[in-house]
Design a protein around this nucleic acid. Structure first.
Length: 112
DNA sequence: GTTGTGACTACCA
DNA sequence: ATGGTAGCCACAA
């Protein structure tokens, strides 16, 4: 679809992620009203300016890890920020995945 | 205009 | 459980 609002909505959804919690691209897309558009979200994040105030670091892939290439600038920063928010990592993978805010649905933890 | 690429996912083998 | 494939979208050339 060609919804010019897509980007804006994604931004809002992303901004709604509370500290200490993270969401996957797919969740962002779904919550934004566009299920299945995870990739679009990813691209939008990439397009975000470095000085953005959006909590882009709280967005991770479905595997529970940082989507950015390991070793890249963003990857390191994101990991650092997440740990700063109290999110525990385990071999570059997030252990706690809490998708739950504003009374919105929650996701189960794979593995557990 | 089409083609290719990418901070993704879900599904099937 | 791991690996390959197809579907999605936005953007650059």
């Amino acid at each position: 679809m060609k919804d010019p609002q897509f980007k804006a909505i994604v931004w809002q959804t992303m901004a709604a992620i509370p500290p200490g919690k993270v969401a996957t691209y797919g969740q962002i897309a779904s919550l934004s009203g566009y299920p299945g558009h995870a990739r679009g979200v990813g691209h939008i994040l990439k397009k975000l300016p470095p000085e953005t105030l959006l909590p882009w670091h709280r967005v991770i892939n479905a595997k529970g890890e940082i989507a950015l290439p390991a070793g890249s600038e963003g990857h390191q920063m994101q990991k650092q920020r997440l740990e700063q928010e109290g999110i525990h990592f385990q071999d570059d993978k997030i252990r706690l995945r809490l998708y739950q805010w504003d009374g919105i649905v929650s996701d189960q933890t794979p593995e557990t």
